[in-house]
Design a protein around this nucleic acid. Structure first.
Lengths: 223, 223
DNA sequence: CGAAGTTTTGACGTCGATCAATCGCTGTGG
DNA sequence: CCACAGCGATTGATCGACGTCAAAACTTCG
């Protein structure tokens, strides 16, 4: 009973802003691969929605260690989390198109429009939910569990298409910095999954899932 | 410049609800050590503020592994993060007193009162900020860095008192499950810090900080 | 074709986990 | 008041998963 309830209620829907309210105030921005969109500590004067490409949201340590907190993929919002200064650095994974919203306009809209307010709130709640799930991966899962959890996450974030081929827009290093591992461990786990027939790897930025059930089993799909 | 900015702006203030608005609708609850206040997946019909004692907020894996996402100490709010179902399990660290707020009253108040709304939003933002800082600890820090980061966090959360003795209301196991380590590693790191003269350990639930600068240096205070 | 960056694989090292024993509280009953 | 049981904390010995170092293969782009 508890497990069933958890399975049906834990999924936090990615919020969708009403196009009517926000559509009008956004402007299109382009970023090329590895460009910084904003850095941790910057004035948070703009927030974004990814149209195409992808973005990594990360924190850096003084000695160069990096932890990626999340990836923003097409349809996702980012930069809404902190209204004074950005808490994370945002960098383009690829050549990326995004719609950008001015902070002062967002705030005005949030004060006036109950729906926009609810959606800003839902965005924040979704990010918190995602971060808390990420904690269990980083704190308590093995390398195998992390890599399979990540692939399952990509499967579930993939929008309409039900292909068994999933797009992997980030590099092995990005995956490593998201999962708290090294590039080499990522490669080894992917190779092992390939050897076991669970997946195939047609190229750097794609994975074919042959046995999704095995993948989910290996990921210990939380609770 | 950037480092200075980060140091002054990254700290997310713990929100304080206006007592006038919320004070009226809270009721006092008591929980004894290790009692479950709510479980992951439960209907989120109440949210809480800790008065005395402490609470761990955690996720469990089916095989018993546990990740603690946060500790709620006196003055902290918890259970506000998810308005449908709770995303985390809350358990009392100690005999604990908390003020509990009914969800439907909170929602009504949030709709009516701009200040309450801002404070609910600030609570969520604080939790997200804390979770993102936690990610870098779990993903990229050594055992030594994790334990010292934790002690620094306790120092900074300690309210008015400026004593060098800090209260540690949780067990070694709780610390381990918060930091993604084992009980043994926690003990060993604490013993090493004691041997090096950085801290003293007068009892299970207290630490005396002799060299706070060394502690902060060892914690690699992020960014 | 050559250069630079990314991915993959192998050999080896290490940090923290595991297994095990002991210590030291705290509470309970004789 | 003391003996003892039970649980948490501590310390030691050993193990193993993942990191580090190194080299080769592959991809991309000039």
């Amino acid at each position: 009973m508890y497990a069933l309830q958890a399975a049906t209620t834990q999924r936090a829907p990615r919020p969708k802003f009403s196009n009517t309210a926000l559509g009008a105030i956004g402007t299109v921005s382009l970023f090329e691969r590895n460009n910084t969109i904003f850095a941790e500590g910057d004035d948070a004067d703009r927030a974004y929605k990814v149209v195409s490409g992808g973005v990594r949201l990360c924190k850096m340590m003084p000695d160069g260690r990096r932890q990626i907190a999340a990836f923003a993929l097409p349809g996702d919002y980012f930069g809404f989390d902190w209204l004074g200064h950005h808490a994370l650095t945002a960098e383009a994974l690829n050549d990326t198109t995004a719609i950008s919203y001015a902070r002062n306009r967002l705030e005005r809209l949030g004060d006036e429009d109950h729906d926009v307010r609810a959606e800003l709130y839902a965005t924040l709640r979704h990010d918190l939910w995602a971060a808390q799930n990420h904690l269990i991966i980083l704190g308590r899962q093995s390398a195998r569990e992390r890599v399979t959890s990540f692939l399952v996450e990509l499967i579930e974030r993939r929008k309409g298409d039900n292909l068994s081929t999933i797009a992997v827009p980030m590099t092995r290093r990005d995956m490593a910095d998201y999962l708290g591992l090294t590039v080499e461990t990522i490669c080894r786990e992917l190779s092992a999954l390939k050897r076991e027939g669970v997946i195939a790897i047609p190229g750097r930025h794609a994975v074919i899932v042959h046995d999704e059930a095995a993948l989910r089993r290996a990921s210990m799909a939380d609770d």
